[in-house]
């Protein structure tokens, strides 16, 4: 058999052989169809890279696909190298008809139906270099400044729209600070519950470890003891030194 299975490609020959040897009573319904519309050639590897005249690349590379380059690739990498956060902005990648780019006119940087982004700068720069014969750096500066201006206006529009919405009663949900405070409160409460549990456990183990008689005084006993001590204290002539803590245990 070898590595490849060519049975799918040879269905017609197989059907013919089966019919000729009377294994099958009739030919399948697709027999003529596949005869008229044969499958394409497969496993053929065309030469995709012209071999270099002298030395250079390995001959096996001749059958590998070539990388695709466009003139705006360099401009794009330059712009996004200078403005890396432009890549973090959300972008619509869905094509409408596949001909979307044909409706754009890059004599202006703003296009109806396309959001303003780094790609606009690159295309505008290309247009300036091609139609106004600007040098690359000048075209970049012009396109960049237009981009900054429109981005600035866009931000103002967004801010005003938000203010208007808020003033007419819109609610945009909780802010980051509120959410943060809520999370902190929740963590604090859970810590509190945990700490109370810990204290309880500790008290229980302590009570279990100490098995001697409990010598704490009840309230009437304590009063009795106080009454016993008080005259003795008041009889003393000297001022009492402030020795903290109760000295009342009998």
């Amino acid at each position: 058999m070898g590595r490849y299975d060519f049975r799918p490609l040879r269905v017609r020959q197989t059907a013919k052989a089966l019919f000729d040897t009377k294994r099958n009573a009739s030919l399948p319904c697709w027999y003529d169809t596949i005869g008229n519309i044969p499958p394409s050639e497969t496993l053929a590897r065309p030469i995709l890279r012209a071999p270099r005249p002298k030395g250079g690349k390995k001959p096996s590379r001749m059958f590998q696909p070539l990388p695709i380059h466009h003139p705006e690739d360099k401009l794009r990498s330059e712009f996004f190298g200078d403005h890396p956060w432009e890549l973090a902005r959300p972008r619509i990648l869905v094509e409408d008809s596949g001909n979307d780019a044909k409706g754009y006119d890059w004599s202006k940087i703003v296009q109806p139906g396309k959001q303003l982004d780094g790609e606009s700068v690159v295309q505008r720069q290309m247009w300036l270099m091609k139609h106004k014969q600007y040098p690359k750096a000048k075209a970049y500066d012009v396109a960049r400044r237009e981009f900054y201006q429109h981005r600035h206006l866009e931000e103002i529009r967004q801010r005003v729209a938000k203010e208007e919405a808020l003033s007419t009663g819109a609610y945009f949900g909780k802010g980051p600070l509120e959410i943060g405070m809520e999370l902190e409160d929740r963590t604090w409460e859970s810590w509190k519950a945990w700490a109370e549990r810990q204290i309880e456990d500790e008290q229980q183990t302590r009570a279990q470890m100490f098995s001697g008689p409990q010598d704490e005084l009840s309230a009437p006993e304590l009063e009795e003891a106080l009454e016993e001590v008080q005259p003795a204290v008041s009889e003393l002539k000297e001022a009492q030194p402030a020795s903290g803590g109760p000295a009342l245990h009998p």
């Binding site: 490849y4 299975d5 060519f6 049975r7 799918p8 490609l9 269905v11 197989t14 059907a15 089966l18 399948p28 697709w30 596949i34 499958p39 394409s40 497969t42 496993l43």
Partner: peptide, 23 residues
């Protein structure tokens, strides 16, 4: 393939085109 039935398949660049009759 075993039963001699022609097949049509969507072949991406990682698939084997010999699995189907019409890729």
């Amino acid at each position: 393939a075993l039963n001699n039935i022609p097949t049509i398949g969507v072949i991406d660049t990682n698939a084997d085109p010999t699995w189907v009759t019409y890729p």
